[in-house]
Design a protein around this nucleic acid. Sequence first.
DNA 1: ACAGTACGTTGATACGCATCAATAAAGTTG
DNA 2: CAACTTTATTGATGCGTATCAACGTACTGT
Lengths: 246, 246
Amino acid sequence: MQLMKAELKQHCPNDANVNCANCRLNSICLPLALRQDEITQLDDIVQRGRPVQKGQHLYRQGENFQSIYAVRSGAIKAYSTTDDGEEQVTGFYFPGEILGMDGIGQNRYASSAQAMDVSAICEIPFHRMEELSGKLPSMQKHFFKLLSQEIVEDQRHITLLSKNSAEERLAALLVSISARHARRGLSATSFRLPMSRGDIGNFLGLTIETVSRVFTRFAKQGLISIANKDVTLIDLEKLKETANVF
Amino acid sequence: MQLMKAELKQHCPNDANVNCANCRLNSICLPLALRQDEITQLDDIVQRGRPVQKGQHLYRQGENFQSIYAVRSGAIKAYSTTDDGEEQVTGFYFPGEILGMDGIGQNRYASSAQAMDVSAICEIPFHRMEELSGKLPSMQKHFFKLLSQEIVEDQRHITLLSKNSAEERLAALLVSISARHARRGLSATSFRLPMSRGDIGNFLGLTIETVSRVFTRFAKQGLISIANKDVTLIDLEKLKETANVF
DNA sequence: ACAGTACGTTGATACGCATCAATAAAGTTG
DNA sequence: CAACTTTATTGATGCGTATCAACGTACTGT
């Protein structure tokens, strides 16, 4: 509950006068690699709309690709639907993270993006981003990096699915979310999981039941405590070991 | 055997005077989106070395990232080694395909790349590629696309590992390799698998034994015929169904 | 506060693939 | 071409997670 308040602060300063230069996320988000004057140019093309409600979509698979998105607060899940109608959750996105880049290649989004909580979002029209990248080498470089890092992330996830047990997968997810919270100055050990058990299972290639059972097992082992969506990582070290994060 | 000869032709014209403009792969490789004069500029930065022998590495995980690579002939596998020493094959690369882009994000390669056959390779120093992308919008655009498409590929693979059975996975790989052969004007139904059963299993999140058994099952069902590394896809349609490719 | 509904937990059973083990075939080297 | 090594096949068994089913708990709107 306190966590939620902390999150809310991030899009509080009435949103009207939020900009990249004063955004508290600018050290981990797109402006990361930019000089002050470059940030201003980025800011000119960033669009900030009204908060997105829980369940609303930012974009849907197959739609014309227009923009990439930065999460300012809340949490987004991306998922793709296969030809035979099955859904695969491909990622969870937290404040400071960028999504939508899978649309570049085919000029249409390869996945759908849905808010798991009320979220504040920055929209960055891609054609303007491209222009800017042509002018600012550091912007181009950073953008190449972003794309490349997403590839590396996905490959890590492939390895996770291919090689790791249910316990290892879930531990890895908890450790990952923990690290991403810590990066934003929030607690590394206590947070709310914005996604359902179903989403977790889908993301990790497991059933709801297995996710539930592993949570219970972790709790019995004293690694975590969990009540609904609120987790506390009691033994983060052991979780990291389980997740093979050294 | 005939297949090998066809492959060899692709890097035959004595290699000394190969360039992007006359390369028979230029319609599917990097020059794809470029005008004639732009191809010349690309050609200036492409380096073509001696053939890489089977088993040799193009780069290794953790090494300084310098270049991306295009396969001109042969076949390359990419794999990453996790902290706990396990290997994960992350991709197979055939002529006309680009690899090494996972190194951009961290300035070091996130995976290793090893030749599965004697291969001819084009090396493209990345910093020169970046410069060129700053000057040629179509180059920048194409490169963004390439990166994005690799993300989409990886996400498809995640779905495969997360949702599909051994048979579906192996069928999907066969269909994918078939399509990539066809794209280069080679037979869609008859080709040599350059990788070992171990590599296939590793890539698909299966054991060697399971791969072997599924091959045998496919053969008994009359979907394929297989002798060592030479496959013939007898019923490509049914394989596509099995792979959920519609 | 209450019914209604979605979401989560827990238990019993089944099944697909991993593992272990033995053999066979292919590739390599002197 | 024989001896060796590596790679692939086939069979027997076991384990981890899916599936099916029942129940419990949290959220929703009136």
